[in-house]
Structure formats: C-alpha cells, structure tokens
C-alpha cells in the first residue's frame, strides 16, 4: 500500500457494493430454500401422521442443509470480497507505484538534485505520464548542464581577461570575489547534476 488513502477508498467502495449484492442474493436464495424445506417437512409430518423420530431426523438434515447454504453464501461473499480486494490492491498499486516513484524524484528536485531517472517496472500503469515526467526532468537537467558549461566558459574567459587586462583596485578584487563565488556555485550545481 503506497498510497493508502487512494487505494483503500477504491477497495472499500467496490467491496462494500459487491458484499451488499452478494448478501441480498444470498438472502433470496436462502428464502427459496427455506420454503422448499418447509414444504417437504410438512409433507413428511403429514405422511408420518404426527411426531416421528425418523421424520425429525430427516427434517434436521434439511435444516442442516439450509444452514450449509448460508455458510456457503457467506463463504462465497467473503471470497468475492477478498478476490476483489486483492485485485484492487494490485491494480491501485500499479498506479500508486509510479506516483510514489515520481514523488521521490519530485522530492529530489525540490532539493535541486537532478540525477538520472530510471524507467518504470513492466506492467506499471501511467507509463505515458512517466515518459512526460522523464522528458521534463531530462530537459531541465540538460538545460542546467548547458548553463553550467556556458558559465564555466564565461568564468574562465573573465579570469583570463582579468589577468591580461588593466583591472585595478576595489572593482578588480570585487570581480575576483564574485567569480570565486560563481565557481563555488557551479561546483555545487555540478554535484546536484551528478
């Protein structure tokens, strides 16, 4: 269960609906079976002409059969609910799984980390969405990497021109300081892209 709220909501609604339907059908079939048993019991008592041990044994058997039907119906209802629940857990997991994975990448992006994105597992849903996310992630990463390369080149050129040129005084030292800060910034950015 990766996204309990999402998954449980589906499962609860579907299983409650199925359980209600199975319960209603069970009640109807039990009613029909009871009518049949009652009719046979009446016949047997009439034939036996009153209380008879054998007839009572037979009617007890019929009542047992009725109870068995109830147990079978309950079993079928529980089986239905379990199968549907398992199915829905698997199906919602196939949705929640990719969402969980993308959420993890989103958390990394929130920290400015743009590492590589690995593909989804086979059978996962939301493949199209994931491809869109990966394309975006790769585009942002590529753009950031290009910026780093461009800024590194600019940094290098500016340092070279500073050494060759006639830059003096406070402005010179300020530029040197800013270029150092830019270098640190680029080192950190490279780490984030690594």
């Amino acid at each position: 269960m990766l996204d309990k709220r999402l998954q449980l909501r589906y499962i609860l609604v579907v299983t409650i609906l199925s359980g209600l339907i199975a319960g209603a059908l069970g009640r109807m079939i039990y009613h029909q079976q009871s009518l049949s048993t009652q009719s046979i019991e009446e016949d047997l008592f009439e034939l036996a002409g009153g209380d008879d041990k054998d007839v009572k044994n037979i009617t007890n058997d019929y009542e047992k059969q009725d109870r068995m039907l109830v147990y079978k119906m309950v079993g079928a209802g529980i089986g239905l609910v379990i199968i549907l629940s398992l199915y829905l857990v698997i199906m919602t997991h196939k949705v929640a799984g990719p969402l969980f994975k993308v959420s993890m990448y989103f958390d990394r992006m929130a920290e400015g980390r743009l590492g590589n994105v690995t593909p989804l597992r086979r059978g996962d849903m939301l493949q199209d969405f994931y491809v869109n996310f990966k394309d975006m992630h790769d585009a942002v990463r590529a753009s950031a990497a290009e910026d780093v390369v461009a800024l590194e080149s600019g940094l290098k050129n500016l340092r070279e021109s500073r050494n060759q040129g006639d830059y003096r005084g406070e402005a010179h030292s300020k530029l040197a300081e800013e270029l150092d800060l830019l270098e640190q910034h680029l080192v950190q950015r490279k780490k984030q892209l690594g």
């Binding site: 990448y105 989103f106 958390d107 990394r108 992006m109 929130a110 920290e111 400015g112 942002v140 950031a144 910026d147 800024l151 500016l158 021109s161 500073r162 040129g165 830059y167 402005a171 010179h172 300020k174 530029l175 300081e177 800013e178 270029l179 800060l181 830019l182 910034h185 950015r189 984030q192």
Partner: peptide, 28 residues
C-alpha cells in the same frame, strides 16, 4: 519540485547578476 527548480533559477539569476554588476564596475 517546481519550487525547487524555480529556486535553482533564482540562485543562478542572483549569482549572475552579481557577477555582471562586478564586471561592469571593473570595466568589463
């Protein structure tokens, strides 16, 4: 995540603005 990317852009802008300002002050 979106805010993180925006923050990255903003930090780039901040750093570049400072460098450009320093370069302009130094006559470059």
């Amino acid at each position: 995540a979106h805010a993180g990317i925006v923050k990255m852009q903003e930090s780039d802008i901040e750093r570049m603005t400072s460098v450009i300002a320093a370069a302009e002050a130094a006559g470059a």
